[in-house]
């Protein structure tokens, strides 16, 4: 609005800034809390009043990646002295531990789950985005009979509730031995993300002027060369954004992973909650696992910030 700013307007603007600050505070407190809990010593994690200021430590992360055998007796001094630093840290955290012949500390299941999550999310993203880009180009540049119906069909596969698809998939996977395998989950996540990637990529490719390819065709390129040498480089931003969205979806997926895996190929989302178990959970370790798991998504969200709207609306709304 033009330069004239009434007092009323200034007041409203200040009120809006205050309101935004309150909203930002409320939205970020839960995230701050899980992050800070991940760096707390165990005895400060569940205090009343809540502990806000403390000396951060990395013992929750050490505990996250390790499994310890617990015993009632306190640790003898010579055992403590002989232990490597990461074991000593566990002793310092008030854990009563005893050394077996294999050592106090063994690897926990978290590292493997994290690795599974990475393998499955990256592979399925690659497949979904490459197939999706090709299909989007096909729909964008060529006449396809019943295009709207096909696009609706593609989208509708994503809208299916995971549990609904999981029932028959579980039976089929059991039959062909894909249960609890990486490939099994990769296929499911690729199918899930493929529809999204087609919709989003179609929007991006629609925006690339057809004249670019026409010019390349006149210059003697084949259609295939024009696609790879002209269209793909132009679509790179879109491809990157789509890939990040697909990665986040696959990374966060819970229901399929819960049903289709139980150990070997299990990803982090069903694993982290299963660590609560019975009795008093160690919230610092759960928070550490959560923090590590959420970190890549937080970074990606920041990188994606200009494409969020587009991705979230399946490419329908552009900025």
């Amino acid at each position: 609005m033009a330069g004239i700013r009434t007092r009323r307007e200034v007041f409203f603007n200040r009120a809006a800034i205050a309101g935004v600050m309150v909203a930002l505070f409320i939205m970020l407190v839960p995230i701050y809390w899980i992050t800070s809990t991940a760096f707390k010593p165990r005895n400060l994690a569940t205090t009343i009043p809540p502990t806000v200021l403390f000396t951060p430590e990395i013992s929750p992360f050490v505990k996250l990646f390790t499994k310890r055998s617990q015993l009632r007796d306190p640790v003898a001094q010579e055992i403590y002295d002989a232990a490597p630093w990461w074991e000593q840290m566990v002793f310092d955290g008030g854990q009563k531990v005893v050394r077996s012949n294999k050592g106090v500390v063994r690897r926990s299941g978290y590292g493997q789950r994290f690795l599974n999550s990475l393998i499955i999310a990256i592979t399925s993203t690659f497949l979904a985005v490459s197939m999706g880009t090709l299909t989007a180009y096909g729909f964008s540049r060529f006449k396809v009979k019943g295009e709207d119906d096909w696009m609706f069909f593609i989208l509708s596969t994503r809208m299916l509730p995971p549990v609904v698809v999981a029932i028959p998939m579980f039976l089929m996977y059991r039959l062909v031995g894909l249960h609890d395998t990486h490939i099994g989950l990769i296929i499911l996540y690729t199918a899930f993300n493929l529809s999204f990637s087609v919709w989003l990529m179609k929007g991006f490719i629609d925006e690339i002027p057809r004249e670019y390819e026409e010019a390349a065709l006149v210059d003697g390129y084949t259609r295939m060369q024009a696609f790879f040498k002209v269209v793909l480089p132009e679509a790179m931003t879109g491809i990157a954004a789509t890939a990040v969205f697909c990665f986040i979806t696959a990374w966060n997926e819970y229901a399929f992973a819960l049903i289709m895996t139980n150990r070997k190929a299990q990803t982090a989302p069903p694993f982290i909650p299963s660590q609560i178990g019975s009795g008093l959970p160690d919230w610092t370790v759960i928070a550490a696992g959560t923090f590590l798991f959420l970190l890549p998504v937080a970074i990606f969200t920041f990188l994606l910030r200009n494409h969020l709207l587009r991705g979230m609306s399946f490419g329908a709304i552009r900025k």
Partner: peptide, 12 residues
């Protein structure tokens, strides 16, 4: 920053 919550895993 406000967008962060919706990008996180529902399970976590």
């Amino acid at each position: 920053l406000l967008m962060l919550p919706m990008m996180l895993s529902m399970a976590v």
